[in-house]
């Protein structure tokens, strides 16, 4: 069963898997993170731009590779403009699809505690 590649669903075309995070980091000299939003479109996230927001990011290119995909709660500013802030933020939907296009992020504070559901507001987790 499924011994050879199938056709891709037309509705999922355009959602790629993204580049290797370490390659992006090496090329651009910027940290790379991602976050998973509670929505299937970027509409609500657009309203979270350029203000201080607290949410979870995942470390995609940490120095110690064993720590890859570790969650960190951060206070940060984000922007759809990939160059506006120092580091790169990738956005995934609640079912894991990667939205095309990089966002940027400025991490103001990084905490070791976790982002609890009760403290979550809006689309960011």
């Amino acid at each position: 069963m499924h011994e050879r590649p199938n056709r891709r669903l037309a509705v999922h075309k355009g959602f790629g898997w993204g580049e290797d995070a370490y390659e992006i980091k090496q090329r651009e000299g910027r940290e790379v993170y991602d976050t998973i939003i509670l929505d299937d479109s970027l509409d609500k996230l657009l309203q979270e731009q350029e203000k201080e927001v607290t949410f979870s990011i995942r470390l995609l290119a940490p120095e110690n590779r064993r720590m890859k995909y570790c969650f960190r709660m951060v206070k940060a500013r984000i922007s759809k403009d990939a160059k506006r802030y120092p580091d790169i933020l990738l956005i995934r939907s609640q079912r894991g699809l990667l939205f095309p296009g990089n966002w940027s992020i400025e991490v103001l504070e990084m905490y070791k505690d976790l982002q609890w559901v009760a403290h979550t507001t809006g689309v960011l987790t």
């Binding site: 898997w17 998973i36 995942r58 110690n64 064993r66 720590m67 890859k68 995909y69 570790c70 969650f71 995934r92 079912r95 894991g96 699809l97 990667l98």
Partner: peptide
């Protein structure tokens, strides 16, 4: 993270 936990599928939450 000192234990070898695989990342199972691209797009998984962790």
């Amino acid at each position: 993270f000192e234990l070898c936990a695989p990342y199972l599928h691209e797009g998984d939450g962790g």
